[in-house]
Simulated scan of single mutants.
Amino acid sequence: MTGGGRAVLLERPGAHRIVPAEPVPPGPGEALVRVYAAGVCGSDRELYEGTRAPGYVRYPVTPGHEWSGTVEAVGEGVDPGLVGRKTVGEGFRNCQTCERCRAGETSLCTGGYDETGFTRPGAFADTLTLPARLLHVLAPDADLRAAALLEPAAVAAAAALTAAARPAERIAVVGAGTLGLLAVQFLAASAPAELLVVEPRTGRAEQAVPFGATEVRPPDGLTALTGRYDLVVETAGAPRSACCAVSLARGGGRVVLTGLPGAGAEGIDPLGLAMRQITVHTVFGAPPAAWAYAVRAFGTGLLNPAPLITHEFAWEEYADAVALVGGGDPGAGKVLLRP
């Protein structure tokens, strides 16, 4: 185990430091990972700005819940063969004993919210120590830079598994951010008759075409498509995106909501849902089955997150990276922090 290291410490909203951070020796059932890359997402910006909902953050904290790395050491009771293996890992520190955990629905753990990078030290650091049971081992030749996107990919995989797309269905994806473009890749694998992507940013929308989208449109040009799609997956979290998704679904269709809108978002008409018999599912986080599916899709080449990465920063540039995420720059896709 090598000594020394650094970490981003967010002491309170808007106040951070780069601090010395010795690797934490893994205890029983734990693993120490040398971080290769960590993704920055909208929730990290909320963390920095102090807008994350109470109960879902604990300051001071080292952020970073999207990451890839290499196992450097393991604690008692953990397979020593993991040392040297490339890996990613789940963020939710679920209790494993409640009814929901035992049913495999670990993102619904009733033991209370606890997540790497929000309530526990995260991956904006040279090393990360976590329960080894949360690790998903990658192939020896895996691209660790691209693998840093496997956390949002697991959420997209959870949406795809929930959606249960069938061949020849008409499918729409609302939102072409990181989550939306990853969802497009999963849904394209189901051989849809149509795969529409709704996105106001032209460049982001067009990026969906190589991933399997058959058409891209802005959200203000959808009148003719109302009620057309068998399945709609919403990933934008914009004030009107959930309503947009429901309007695109045909009678008896399915909608999967994954975006997390802020306060004041437009609500969905319950009477309209009932009369049109729309089935609405929601996704928050990803259970182990979705993680395993995302990792397998990544390993086989079905999922290719690398083209989504547009910027990379060092730990010292943490504030610049956070400012870029959600800052309105049309050229900003996925942002990574690197040791």
Rank of each mutant, 00 (worst) to 15 (best):
T127R: 11
A158F: 00
G221D: 11
D220S: 13
N94S: 13
R145Q: 13
E194G: 02
T106A: 06
T116W: 05
H136E: 12
T162W: 06
A154K: 00
P219V: 08
A159W: 01
E105W: 09
V174E: 05
L225K: 00
L196T: 07
P80L: 01
A213W: 12
V83M: 04
L150H: 01
Q207W: 00
V216D: 11
G122W: 02
G81Y: 00
E99D: 13
E215Y: 09
D143I: 09
P121N: 08
V209Y: 09
N94F: 14
A193L: 15
E115V: 14
A160M: 06
A205N: 01
Q185H: 06
G221M: 07
T129K: 04
C98A: 11
L128A: 05
R145S: 09
R120M: 12
A165W: 00
H136N: 12
D143N: 15
E215R: 15
G89A: 15
A125I: 05
G112L: 04
A158W: 01
G89I: 03
A172D: 09
L128G: 07
E90S: 02
P121R: 01
A146P: 03
Q96H: 13
D126A: 11
R217E: 12
L134A: 15
T162E: 15
P140Y: 11
Q207H: 10
T202E: 14
F92S: 02
L108C: 02
A188T: 09
F92Q: 14
A139D: 15
A159N: 08
D143T: 10
V216H: 03
L182H: 07
P131D: 10
